[in-house]
Amino acid sequence: MTYAYLFKYIIIGDTGVGKSCLLLQFTDKRFQPVHDLTIGVEFGARMVNIDGKQIKLQIWDTAGQESFRSITRSYYRGAAGALLVYDITRRETFNHLTSWLEDARQHSSSNMVIMLIGNKSDLESRRDVKREEGEAFAREHGLIFMETSAKTACNVEEAFINTAKEIYRKIQQGLFDVHNEANGIKIGPQQSISTPVGSSTSQRNSRDIGSNSGCC
């Protein structure tokens, strides 16, 4: 299937925050309550439509456990977007964000778009991190912020797609050099950046969404 751009994403954050579940919900539209611990990197991919262009998201779901971290961080290189995930019911996963952010900044392009995600928003009764704290952290560090639930699918589409929209906006503004592979963006096969993608094809193949549903 043809696409205008390919964006590489990484999903990072502590073990057990729901990184793999977010990926599964986004790619397969299903939730798996028990998931094997991720070791190394697992991959997912999906086409989305941004501003009439087909964009392939290539998603690298990394292991969150400390013992695997030194290995997986070598794969941050060349990511255009990062989903930095914490669990709103576990304060320590929020406390570790600074360390994850340092890792991401150190091993990736400075232009990388980072979406901060407070996951498990369906577990409101067990909430340990206020939404305002997530918002403040994101503001302070220049991140986009959303709360999601991989279980109910709330805001999952939006988290992945809004990240793509921000990357695309940066491309349009000339902040991303699409010819530099280190930026995690590739021009699709048989595409040129000046060639518009046929709208009928885009619509037929896409799962575009509107603005935030605000379900969380």
Binding site: M1, I39, G40, V41, E42, F43, A45, F68, I71, Y75
Partner: peptide, 26 residues
């Protein structure tokens, strides 16, 4: 030092990389 696993994609049957695992853990 790495194990790679791939299989046919559900969408079009083309080969798709599923995972990359350090052999230390396999």
């Amino acid at each position: 030092d790495l194990l790679l696993l791939a299989g046919p994609s559900k969408e079009n049957g083309h080969l798709e990389l599923f995972g990359l695992f350090p052999l230390q853990f396999v």
